[in-house]
Amino acid sequence: MTTSEQSRTIAVVSAGLSQPSSTRLLADRLADAAVRELEDLGQVARVENVELRDLAHPVVDAMLTGFPSGDLARAQEAVTGADGIIAVTPVFTSSFSGLFKSFWDIIDPEALGGVPVLLGATGGTARHSLALEYAVRPLFTYLHADVVPTSVFAATDDWAASAADVGAGLPRRIERAGRELARRVAQRQGDGPADPFASSPSFTELLGGS
């Protein structure tokens, strides 16, 4: 399979509690931006949506028993098997939601090593935007994920501004973050990040050995 024919999977994890949810809306916008960029790079992209609201009870059960099953097990497989992840949480009391944190707590801590991750969050006011940097980003750094530089926070006022002006701050941040994720995903090979030294000759080859 050539690079242009490779199929990539993006797992989109949304922890919004309401329906409709601004958290899910942001997650969908970020996924659309990443998919567009991947297609521009000549790659087929598929999105797997994981709505944590529908998994709240199984998540608690798995925390108590240590054994996820059913829809939760399938959601975990979708996330740990993805080429890239978009993770979006509402901000409650200046941090990620309990449901969001609980889901990642029951993921194998070794399963996300090197996986590109794009972070997003929603909240009522821009004052909570730093929660992405002091709460959410450290969580995925602990999980050894490859977190892209741009994270996206959407406050209530951002949605009104973006609806009136497609060049407003939120759409620009979404496009930039989606582009960063897509490029990391496109560069990723096999089950881990691309090895910059993979094509380097061995010492035996340098010394003329067989």
Rank of each mutant, 00 (worst) to 15 (best):
4 S>V: 03
177 A>S: 06
175 E>S: 01
82 A>R: 08
79 V>I: 01
139 L>N: 07
179 R>E: 11
80 T>V: 09
205 E>D: 13
66 G>F: 06
88 V>H: 04
161 A>S: 05
163 A>Y: 12
100 F>L: 10
50 V>M: 07
136 V>L: 15
32 D>T: 09
43 Q>K: 03
123 G>M: 05
126 A>Q: 13
198 A>M: 03
124 G>I: 04
196 P>I: 10
21 S>A: 08
158 D>F: 07
62 A>H: 01
81 G>Q: 02
17 L>S: 14
37 E>Y: 09
95 S>A: 14
168 A>T: 01
39 E>G: 03
152 V>T: 05
104 W>T: 03
72 L>G: 00
150 T>G: 01
96 F>G: 08
80 T>Y: 12
197 F>N: 07
131 A>R: 07
16 G>F: 06
1 M>I: 05
46 R>E: 14
203 F>V: 13
183 R>C: 00
35 V>P: 08
26 L>W: 12
155 A>S: 01
139 L>V: 11
105 D>F: 13
153 F>I: 02
7 S>E: 15
58 P>H: 04
94 S>H: 15
30 L>S: 09
115 V>K: 10
159 W>A: 02
192 G>V: 11
62 A>Y: 07
112 L>P: 01
86 I>D: 05
121 A>K: 12
54 D>V: 09
193 P>W: 13
182 A>G: 04
164 A>H: 08
196 P>L: 10
3 T>D: 15
195 D>Y: 11
132 L>W: 09
91 V>N: 08
122 T>R: 11
12 V>Y: 10
184 R>V: 05
202 S>N: 09
92 F>N: 08
75 A>Q: 09
172 R>C: 03
189 Q>V: 13
66 G>H: 12
80 T>E: 12
50 V>S: 07
21 S>T: 02
12 V>G: 00
151 S>I: 04
183 R>M: 08
178 G>D: 09
84 G>F: 13
183 R>T: 01
51 E>K: 14
13 V>D: 02
44 V>N: 15
207 L>F: 12
20 P>G: 01
125 T>A: 11
165 D>T: 03
28 D>Y: 12
19 Q>E: 15
185 V>Y: 02
22 S>F: 14
126 A>M: 10
158 D>W: 06
141 T>N: 10
58 P>C: 00
171 P>V: 00
182 A>F: 06
155 A>T: 04
35 V>Q: 13
92 F>G: 02
197 F>A: 06
25 L>W: 12
151 S>P: 08
3 T>I: 14
135 A>R: 11
66 G>I: 01
61 D>L: 15
119 L>H: 06
96 F>W: 15
24 R>T: 12
20 P>M: 10
90 P>I: 00
117 V>F: 13
86 I>S: 02
147 V>Y: 12
53 R>G: 01
6 Q>W: 10
164 A>W: 06
149 P>R: 06
53 R>P: 07
134 Y>V: 08
24 R>A: 12
189 Q>K: 14
